[in-house]
Nucleic acid binder design. Structure first.
Lengths: 161, 161
DNA sequence: GCTATACTGTAAATAGGTTAACAGTTAGCC
DNA sequence: GGCTAACTGTTAACCTATTTACAGTATAGC
């Protein structure tokens, strides 16, 4: 169903560009709800899973700020996220010699075990979610959205000048 | 910058489909942050604006459930959202004769006045955000995302069977 | 060496979202 | 008519996110 119909709006009320933007946001909202329903079955949330995956894929130990940069999550929020992951024993904060401000965050054995369970199932879910798009459609989609993100960063900077 | 680079992952770690999905979510996240920065200048949030716009565009008075359906917002959440909008006097809950369970939600004069101020500025911001995509790119994007959403609804229903 | 500045993590208040349980009301059905 | 089921809105507990303010630490420059 097209967006104007979902919103029960008369046709012609949205510009083509506005409709595209709302389509992005709405699709992401629905993906987010499906994801959280999925991860909930494993006792974690999407945000927590993202942290674990970034830690697993990083080529060096990361600080809280570094994780936040990769995930577009604020420092304050990383504190709260890691508090919960540490309480569940999936990560630990390790003190760093030479800089007492920072922690290095490490996956624990339990964290890795959880990922071994969740990751394959998650990839299957992603495949099922995206099954209606062929490879070239996916590539075109990524290309357009990457271009758009670059434009958003630029207009954001302009607004701050 | 492509997603694998933003995440500082080695290439080839994501399938094309997975990368497309993450591109959608990440782009929407950034749009959401920009939107909330924008609406914050008018003392409202994106979610609150969405409620006001749906009320303005509806062709009949809406109940809380009906607003929630259009916006994919739960009943519980609509209560909280409308509490805030009613406190700011942008909407009122009106009792309905013949069904004491429901309210009809109406925009107040202040609500309309706010929209008259916010809407034009918002449309300009949307245009600037999407300026890097031409009309046919926007149409293609909307078409692909609409198709994807339909597929998501289907796989969601399958999982509940 | 000292000071000013920048950086890191934390905390509190606020907002939006979830689910689960609940009360009141309506509607269907025997 | 009366019981049951469905619907509407609220509440509480929780999670994620925001901004602001703060403490502690590190660094650069004088």
């Amino acid at each position: 169903m097209s967006l104007p119909k979902e919103l029960k709006m008369k046709g012609g009320m949205l510009t083509t560009q506005h409709e595209a933007l709302l389509n992005i946001v709405r699709t992401a909202t629905i993906i987010g709800k499906l994801s959280n329903a999925f991860f909930g079955r494993f006792g974690i949330t999407e945000a927590q899973y993202n942290v674990l995956i970034v830690l697993k894929l990083a080529d060096k130990p990361l600080t809280q700020v570094e994780i936040g940069e990769r995930l577009v999550v604020s420092r304050a929020n990383m504190t709260a996220l890691l508090d919960k992951l540490e309480k569940k024993a999936y990560v630990i904060r390790k003190k760093v010699e030479g800089d007492r401000r920072i922690f290095q965050i490490e996956l624990t054995k339990e964290g890795r075990k959880l990922l071994d369970k969740v990751e394959p199932a998650y990839l299957r879910q992603v495949e099922s979610n995206m099954a209606c798009l062929n490879l070239s459609a996916c590539k075109a989609l990524s290309r357009v959205l990457t271009l758009l993100r670059e434009n958003l960063h630029i207009t954001e900077e302009e607004r701050h000048e």
